[in-house]
């Protein structure tokens, strides 16, 4: 850990509480008064990010894409370019290589005993890794990986993002098409170009972005198609209450190789109860991306694409918390 980093963070987070909120589309810190909540019932739980530490990765191992286990006791991470799979202990930062052949994001089984990741070859197979030991290559999609269904009007499949109580959200990456079903009602939330969709825990809302990651637009919509939010951002991660989400706001710039890259990024918290946005980070030297909210909603892991580190912070209630 770099000296003074946590202290900096506490200070930044505190500042965010005081004056860092803004309306969508407005630069942070310019409309502090606008964040006033009118309902006491919802004014007590907006968290800030504190006690951030460098958990894993860095100079010796570039890690990205943190993903919490269902019990919140472990994290998955991928290597640079999405290659390989590591398991990180969030308590100690201990990191071990689980599978060098993974290509792309991994998924936890519901009991947290198994992970699966795309094999990355042309077989479209999956590597299933039993954490007790052993890797099995399978060609079928494991049951705990989100299912796919025929997209209907194109010969491609759609991933089922959410399904419960007659409500279903599907995503077809080929066209970037996002659809919602409630009983017999069918609605197209995004006809094309949607990327990285995430359904809220209760399936009533969906967040996604459009456009390239160098200049993305974050969208949040209800299943009725009503747009709740649209503004710069990507990589949404819902909090358990489904009322707020953390997202990244990447900005393009010249990378170390001189080519256009995500050269800067900060994390923000979007509170859908009043559509206010709160800065969670303000570190120009870091490129905070891929936030992952722990199942308990109290911890936030994210990747720094500048250093290759997985970082971990505490989501602490603020703004009038009792």
């Amino acid at each position: 850990m770099r000296s003074g980093w946590i202290g900096l963070w506490v200070a930044v987070a505190t500042a965010s509480c005081d004056a860092g909120t803004s309306r969508p589309g407005e630069p942070p810190g310019t409309t502090g008064a606008a964040s006033t909540n009118t309902s006491p019932a919802v004014a007590t739980a907006t968290p800030i990010l504190a006690d951030v530490l460098r958990l894993a990765g860095g100079a010796d191992r570039f890690l990205v894409t943190p993903r919490w286990s269902p019990d919140g006791r472990r994290l998955l991470a991928s290597g640079r370019g999405g290659v390989g799979l590591w398991i990180v202990d969030p308590a100690s930062g201990t990191t071990r290589l689980a599978d060098p052949d993974c290509r792309g994001p991994a998924f936890w089984s519901h009991d947290g005993a198994t992970v699966a990741c795309p094999a990355g070859d042309t077989t479209s197979g999956w590597l299933v890794h039993d954490l007790a030991g052993g890797i099995d290559r399978v060609t079928a999609r494991p049951a705990f990986v989100p299912a796919t269904i025929p997209a209907g009007d194109v010969p491609a499949d759609a991933e089922v993002l959410f399904e419960a109580e007659g409500r279903r959200v599907t995503y077809e990456e080929y066209r970037g098409r996002l659809e919602a079903w409630e009983g017999e009602d069918h609605r197209v939330l995004a006809g094309e170009d949607a990327a990285g969709p995430r359904a809220s825990p209760d399936g009533s809302r969906v967040a996604w972005w459009t456009g390239p990651l160098l200049d993305p637009t974050l969208h949040v919509s209800g299943l009725d198609g009503r747009e709740i939010f649209a503004g710069p951002g990507a990589h949404a991660a819902w909090l358990p209450d489904g009322e707020s989400l953390v997202y990244a706001v990447p900005r393009a710039g010249a990378g170390p190789d001189g080519a256009p890259r995500v050269a800067a990024s900060e994390l923000r918290l979007l509170d859908l109860r009043d559509a206010s946005s709160t800065d969670l980070t303000a570190t120009p030297e870091a490129v905070e991306m891929q936030p992952a909210v722990a199942p308990d909603g109290r911890r936030l892991a994210f990747a720094d694409w500048a250093s290759g580190e997985i970082r971990l912070g505490r989501l602490a209630p603020a703004r009038g918390a009792p």
């Binding site: 991928s78 290509r103 792309g104 994001p105 990456e173 970037g176 972005w209 456009g211 390239p212």
Partner: peptide, 9 residues
């Protein structure tokens, strides 16, 4: 279309 594709796509 200008868009973002996921790792593994």
């Amino acid at each position: 279309h200008s868009r973002t594709r996921s790792a593994g796509f």
